[in-house]
Design a protein around this nucleic acid. Structure first.
Lengths: 354, 354
DNA sequence: TTGAAAGCGGTACCAG
DNA sequence: CTGGTACCGCTTTCAA
């Protein structure tokens, strides 16, 4: 109801001036304000439940302690949601607040969102995408310290620092896990070319095979899509009617939803997982991978870590900023790669002997 | 980069005073400022790419055109994400910006988040939850116009307007769909008591049976949980080893993930969907329901609509506000119920004859 | 028709 | 040690 208390209210109540209130409440009381006054001020502030008006502060200090986050799809996705969660953790712990604006994959809205945020005096900007992808950096982002999370500037001379998962290594380690279990015929449902993550994971798959001196059958690699139905159909193509000797003993999927489709198909064909067929997911999607039957072995995307790392980089740039050195200057790393993490559950097991 | 242009810059360039700039750019130039000056001002503003500093505006006008959104779990959930998406649509179209703060289900953080937002002079507050649930309204929310989305104040005398889905009707219509297909033995995997939605949907299930004069077998109702494994286990209990005559012909689930478990179990048991068994989901979860094999018939939660309705209510209160009438005054509706929507796909079909 | 000045809520500097 | 005052960028009133 009634307005919040201002510094003036506190000053009156404590019988001092506004300046004194400001000093004391900002920890610079000692040596400037009498001990006794300090106590009265603190007491009054408490009684009035005073906290400074952030707007006035921003105007005065020319910094808002707000970080703007642009996302191409937050609000429907558990993926960049987690990135934002991680970013927010870090921001909060350092006294910043994050403001999320969703552009719903409409590039035209990016620019206007950036302007809106800039008008609100954000101290920094972060751009987050659902899947790994190249983006066109909105011009305005170069006006304040900025960072890219899970996406990157595709230009020859990238201006901004980006933080992305190490997909090649992820693909490799997932494959190695299977190889170590004795699998030698591993099919790969690799998503589709629309995501740069797909070819990277395929690369990891190839690297692992090469390192293990295991041959690759090109017809085992499918670029079919990312959804349950694609997993199901791919598996049917692979397994239905094939003689046991000509079946892959493991199927590696580019995400957990594909793995659901694989499991569905396996069940329909009367195959046991992991006895007859091992299934490997990717992403470690919450509430999916861990509750599947059987629980999915998967490669966890380090989403929270990406968010944390990106925000840390950003805040360091802001708080350390002496000059307008917020674009990646010489000597600054332009890319941070965060490793994925293998999560072994029950959907993978030793290759069947045949 | 160089700082943004201020009204003073524009004034100088146009050779007028700041006041003139303000008047003209706010559409109150006619009758106050000479036509010619107006043109010069507009021209200068354009050249300098001027837009007013939102911070200064907020301080001056005592309103920020920012709506704070508190969420107990946005950032990992496609559910309240959609609510926020709908809310944001409405806010944007009316010239407001939304700021999302995630409290990650930590009630203690609610209060501090509200304070933070209040310090930033938000014009209104919205509280969003992932699942329908009663909440303890943070005190601060009563200081500005506020609304609850997908949650409600459980107190005898609720202070805030809330917008929730009509779960009873949802449960009833889902059941009716099955009843109309001839099913008379419909099992219900009802989630668990931790959500108030569960009993409401059960109520709908009962209502539909009563209206159709169909008897209910109490042992067909399971409160087992919300995840894939619960769906699988529940189905196994229901179907495995049971004589065909004693099997339910349809299984209704309280969410789509349960339905995945059901489908997995059915496949394992060699049952065809929907020929031998119909499966009904709930939620219409993106990328799950529509891509399942077979595609899931489900009851869509009206999440976007909830968000839109809640934000509309809120902004109406803010913009219409003559006095401090922002708590639901007499005559004001305190509850808005939004209907769910049946989405018929391929997992339900006529009951098998036996 | 125009410009000067006050004030929104703070902080910081500078006399006293 | 303390209080007065200028200023952040903008709107609005008031006097010229």
């Amino acid at each position: 109801m009634n307005r919040k208390a201002t510094a003036l209210d506190v000053a009156k109540r404590a019988g001092v001036s506004r300046s004194a209130v400001s000093l004391v409440l900002n920890g610079r009381g000692d040596g400037n304000v009498a001990k006794e006054s300090q106590d009265r001020i603190r007491q009054a502030a408490l009684e009035l439940n005073y906290s400074p008006n952030a707007i006035a502060l921003s105007l005065r200090n020319q910094r808002s302690r707000v970080i703007g986050i642009l996302s191409d799809e937050v609000v429907v996705s558990p993926f960049d949601g987690n990135i934002i969660g991680g970013a927010d953790d870090v921001a909060r712990s350092r006294g910043f607040v994050t403001v999320v604006m969703d552009t719903e994959r409409d590039a035209a809205r990016d620019a206007s969102a950036v302007e809106t945020l800039l008008d609100r005096q954000v101290d920094g900007l972060m751009y987050v995408t659902v899947g790994l992808k190249p983006i066109e950096v909105p011009q305005g982002m170069l006006r304040v310290p900025s960072v890219l999370a899970n996406c990157y500037d595709d230009h020859p001379q990238p201006q901004l620092h980006h933080v992305i998962p190490d997909e090649v290594t992820g693909g490799r380690q997932a494959t190695e896990h299977l190889l170590q279990l004795g699998h030698r015929d591993i099919a790969l449902l690799a998503g589709s070319e629309d995501s740069p993550a797909a070819p990277l994971r395929v690369q990891g798959y190839r690297d692992a095979h090469a390192a293990a001196d295991a041959p690759i059958r090109e017809d085992r690699i499918f670029m079919a899509g990312w959804d349950i139905d694609a997993g199901y159909r791919g598996t049917m193509k692979l397994l239905d009617g094939a003689s046991p000797a000509d079946r892959p003993t493991a199927i590696m999927c580019a995400n957990d939803r594909l793995a659901i489709g694989v499991a569905l198909a396996a069940a329909r064909l009367g195959l046991s997982v992991p006895e007859d067929l091992s299934i490997m997911g990717y992403d470690d999607e919450t509430r999916i991978a861990d509750t599947m039957i059987p629980a999915l072995t998967t490669m966890a995307l380090p989403l929270r870590e990406i968010g944390r790392a990106a925000m840390t980089t950003l805040l360091d740039a802001i708080e350390g900023a002496g000059e307008g050195t917020h674009t990646a200057g010489k000597g600054t790393t332009v890319e941070t790669m965060v490793p994925c993490r293998l999560v072994v559950r029950e959907s993978t097991g030793p290759a069947p002997t045949r």
